[in-house]
Design a binder for these strands. Structure first.
Length: 896
RNA sequence: GGACGAUUAGCUCAGUUGGUUAGAGCGCUACAUUGACAUUGUAGAGGUCAGAGGUUCGAAUCCUCUAUCGUCCACCA
């Protein structure tokens, strides 16, 4: 009946082999130019859809977390490209200042070198070389994942265009008074002579002595400390405001002579102080403790430096000067004991902060740093501070667009909590790799700048002699904070500062900003997402993105973090080699929800390899048995099975589309899998095997071509391979997303399925030989006509049902019953163990009785009837009548 | 210390915002298999939804507490 099939079985391999297709397909996509939305058909008429890739650090290779990110973003991009959007996905990499510098420092240390020995210039050469190699690896891996990014727009946080953006924004902020230079307590390693970022500090549990004493014998309050030597710099004592013991002293000042040093101590209240720790009174040493520094700033206390950059006691503290902190500690304790001031010495557990490089205990000391003031009102923005702006951007969308949405929603709470506790942001780092702070000084001695030192802040170095640039570099998040708009510029000239606003003059920016979605890990919500909102709203007066989709961390199958030391790291490239990119991508997306971690074992990936292969074989089967006509646009259903599958498919299109739009990627892929495997392959294809008509060919062509489109965003390689090699199409990637054809209505195939399953069950239970004939009675309702159409299906099934004699029984009672239940029941005669069957039916009736009883109780409950929505009650009633009808059927069977 | 999660089948996880008899994959058990696919098919077993209270006609879902695990932030005077 089929006029021509387009393929012979020998032409198509029995299994999909990813390694044979992937690279060639990627190359073809890339060469087509369609990753660049400018080249898409009707590019200008399309609404924009934009994702800017969270740039991976150039510190090595991609891990599974990156694979997850790439998979999700590629799915979104491919979907929108097919759905008629100007889909742009901008790639890029991050120089990751500290992380990269640290890596390279480690490498040169193996050669016995330090960065200081190499010097700034030579060292940076090494770092750049390393960064370049990492970059190349990362790009190669990204392409392996099938990422459809527009490589012509690739960006790097440290390239010329992005550097211009960084310097422009720095200059603007400085001129707006938002960037200032000031002292702050930093983590200082006395051995490395360098500040450490908070995440470079390691904590070591240790035993320490907690000393309790008075500064001198006339002092009214005793304090407790593990570091008595720093008390030489105390300027206050803090107590809890609720502490009755000290309430009367708050606000007073006392002079003291502490081991020969004159102190002037003010008593202050701060709720951070715990009343039951030690004496409940905390000696405030502003220069050598972060908390104390903050208190001092708030209470306007004087700051006295005790410890110098070598970790020794400063000049001016008598016998203690020049001694190391440790020596001084012992000596102070000794003097206190001698003077009879020591009240107790107690062993306590304590976390010691040490340098991650050399294990030396770090000293908090004040140091000159650059800051972004996040609370200063900005006149041109209506007296709102950045902090206010960033909150409002999320809360109410003050920028005339829809508000930023964070998925999952619960992270909005985290965001607000963080925003409300925002402190000034220290943006200077004492490392070499990164954006050097665009500030130049002219002074006799560059190391000794003062407030009066001549200073220049600008995009280009200043003219004239004697200018020296600030030694420090910017926090890497400063440049990444500009990422959504800095990547949409094509050249340095695209940026201009006009009227306290950064103008981005590129066509890309006009079309594609704000971006559609920022997809990233929840772990950098504060570091990055919040800062992007702050920086972007400030710089270009617009939100950076509309949605934030936060993915979880990828862990091993036991939920542990993947780490080299545990040996549980899964390399995505290994998975791609073993199971193919498509399977790897599915494993990243199915069974996960935004914001939750993903536990991933290799088995999960291998499971999806089977699914990918199944799809290949479905296409292979259709092509070789029927042929695929990719031009079929409309089909007509002729049998129940046709209507059933087309109805399901119509729903599938609608649901998958809605799911992807709402970021329910797991749900979309799950539905596709169920349709493909359970409905299409296991039922419709099986049922179709014995009816090779032109109409079947049309329906199968329609379903397979559109199903490939639905699958494409998830598994681009196998679908593209099928499209080009089996279907004979040009390029699936830019085909249009399927539209829902409208429901065909299901009028009976579910019933047919039921019949077939019932027959199989009865045969199995009674161990009927496949060849043996069975007499069956089919009780059918008014839908006998549909059954008639479906009969060839039943006859043709593999389970040899064809040899069964079917006899319809149309007596009045039965008809009436089944018309009511809208169902079909079959009852097989012969080869049946009567007793067993009776027992089975009795059990079923018993179960139904329970359900019926429960519903009847529910319906007789006045409160339920009164309060439940009408739809729920109707549903319950429907259920009840269905159960009752089922029961009657069973009773009839028993009687029969 | 502050905040936020998680706890559902042997394992890994869904559960669309309170409403059918709580689902999937893997694993397990039984059966099947000569014409797309053994990377297969059919069926089955397996869950007092961590525990205890509460709200409600109705709770895996909302509230409170407890336990265990986890993450982030602040800190450890």
């Amino acid at each position: 009946m089929i006029e021509e099939k387009n393929k012979n079985p020998e032409e198509i391999s029995k299994a999909f082999e990813p390694a044979l297709h992937e690279d060639a397909i990627y190359k073809k996509w890339e060469e087509s130019g369609f990753f660049n939305p400018d080249n898409l058909p009707d590019a200008d008429a399309r609404p924009p859809y934009t994702i800017v890739l969270p740039p991976p650090n150039v510190t090595g290779t991609l891990h599974l977390g990156h694979s997850l990110m790439l998979a999700v973003e590629d799915i979104l991009t491919r979907f929108h490209r097919m759905a008629g959007y100007r889909a742009l996905w901008v790639p890029g990499t991050d120089h990751a200042a500290i992380a990269t510098q640290t890596k390279v420092e480690k490498l040169i240390r193996e050669e016995g070198l330090t960065r200081h020995q190499l010097g700034r210039e030579k060292f940076l050469e090494r770092v750049n070389k390393f960064a370049q190699e990492s970059h190349d690896t990362i790009i190669r891996q990204s392409k392996k994942m099938g990422s459809s990014m527009d490589w012509s727009r690739e960006a790097y946080t440290l390239d010329a265009v992005r550097t211009r953006a960084v310097r422009s924004v720095f200059k603007m902020m400085f001129e707006d008074g938002l960037i200032y230079r000031g002292e702050r307590v930093v983590n200082w390693c006395p051995r490395c002579h360098s500040t450490l970022a908070d995440d470079e500090v390691e904590y070591k549990e240790q035993k320490a002595k907690l000393y309790t004493f008075k500064y001198d014998k006339d002092f009214p309050i005793s304090i407790s400390t593990t570091r008595p030597e720093t008390k030489l710099g105390d300027t206050a004592i803090a107590v809890n405001p609720k502490d009755e013991r000290y309430k009367h002293l708050v606000g007073q000042s006392f002079a003291a002579n502490f081991c020969g040093t004159k102190l002037n101590i003010k008593i202050i209240a701060d709720r951070q102080v715990e009343s039951d720790f030690g004496t409940g009174a905390l000696g405030v040493t502003p220069a050598h403790s972060m908390v104390d520094w903050k208190m001092a700033k708030e209470q306007d206390l004087p700051i006295i430096k005790v410890i110098n950059e070598d970790g020794n006691i400063h000049e001016g503290f008598g016998e203690f000067s020049g001694k190391s902190a440790l020596e001084a500690r012992e000596l102070v304790a000794q003097r206190l004991r001698e003077a009879g001031l020591m009240e107790s010495e107690e062993d306590v557990a304590n976390n010691l902060s040490v340098c991650y490089r050399c294990d030396t205990p770090i000293e908090p000391i004040p140091s000159l740093q650059w800051f972004v003031n996040v609370n200063l009102p900005i006149e041109r923005l209506g007296n709102r501070s950045i902090k206010d702006l960033s909150l409002e951007a999320v809360r109410s969308g003050v920028f005339g667009r829809d508000k930023i949405r964070i998925l999952p929603e619960r992270f909005e709470k985290n965001y607000f909590h963080w925003m409300n506790n925002l402190g000034d942001w220290c943006i200077s780092r004492q490392i070499w790799f990164g954006h050097r702070i665009p500030v130049w000084y002219r002074a006799a001695d560059n190391q000794q700048q003062t407030e009066s030192t001549e200073k220049y802040v600008g995009i280009e170095p200043p003219a004239g002699d004697g200018w020296l640039q600030d030694e420090d570099t910017l926090d890497t998040w400063f440049s990444s904070g500009l990422w959504t708009f800095s990547t949409l510029a094509n050249s340095e000239d695209d940026f201009a500062i006009e009227n306290h606003k950064l103008v981005v003059k590129s066509a890309e920016f006009a079309k594609h900003h704000p971006t559609s979605v920022l997809e990233t890990g929840y772990d950098i919500l504060f570091f990055w997402v919040a800062r992007m909102i702050i920086m972007t709203t400030y710089a270009v007066n617009d939100i950076p993105f509309q949605d934030v989709y936060l993915h979880g961390l990828v862990r091993d199958e036991k939920g542990r973090k993947m780490s080299k030391s545990l040996g549980n790291v899964i390399d995505p490239l290994d998975m791609i080699t073993a199971y193919g990119t498509d399977a790897t991508r599915l494993a990243m997306v199915v069974g996960t929800t935004p914001g939750n971690d993903l536990n991933l074992g290799e088995e999960k990936i291998s499971g999806f390899r089977n699914l990918v292969n199944k799809i290949w074989n479905i296409a292979r089967f259709i092509a070789t048995s029927y042929g695929i006509d990719r031009n079929v646009t409309a089909v007509s259903a002729q049998t129940s099975a046709d209507r059933w599958i087309l109805d399901k498919f119509s729903n599938l299109i609608a649901e998958v589309t809605a799911d992807i739009k709402e970021y329910r990627l797991s749900s979309a892929a799950e539905k596709l899998r169920v349709f493909t495997w359970d409905d299409l392959a296991d039922w419709y294809l099986e049922a179709s095997k014995f009816e090779k008509s032109e109409n079947k060919k049309a329906i199968l062509s329609y379903i397979i071509t559109n199903l490939l489109k639905l699958w494409h965003p998830f598994i681009p390689f196998v679908t593209e391979a099928i499209w080009q090699e089996i279907v004979g199409g040009e390029m699936l990637m830019i085909e249009s997303w399927p539209k829902e054809p409208g429901s065909q209505g299901d009028d009976g195939f579910e019933l047919v399925k039921k019949v077939i399953l019932a027959i199989r069950n009865v045969r199995a239970e009674n161990k009927v030989e496949p060849a043996k004939k069975i007499k069956a009675v089919i009780f059918a309702n008014a839908k006998t006509a549909q059954l008639e159409a479906a009969r060839p299906l039943i006859m043709g099934l593999r389970t040899n049902i064809g040899e069964m004699e079917l006899a319809e029984k149309g007596e009045a009672p039965a008809q009436a019953i089944f018309a009511a239940v809208e169902g079909v029941e079959i009852y097989l005669l012969g080869a049946i163990d009567q007793e067993k069957e009776k027992a089975r039916i009795a059990k079923e009736i018993e179960q139904l009785d329970k359900l019926i009883g429960a519903i009847e109780m529910k319906l007789s409950n006045q409160e339920f009837v009164g309060k439940a929505p009408a739809a729920v009650i109707a549903k319950e009633k429907e259920k009840l009548s269905k159960y009752q009808a089922d029961k009657e059927v069973l009773a009839l069977k028993l009687a029969y």
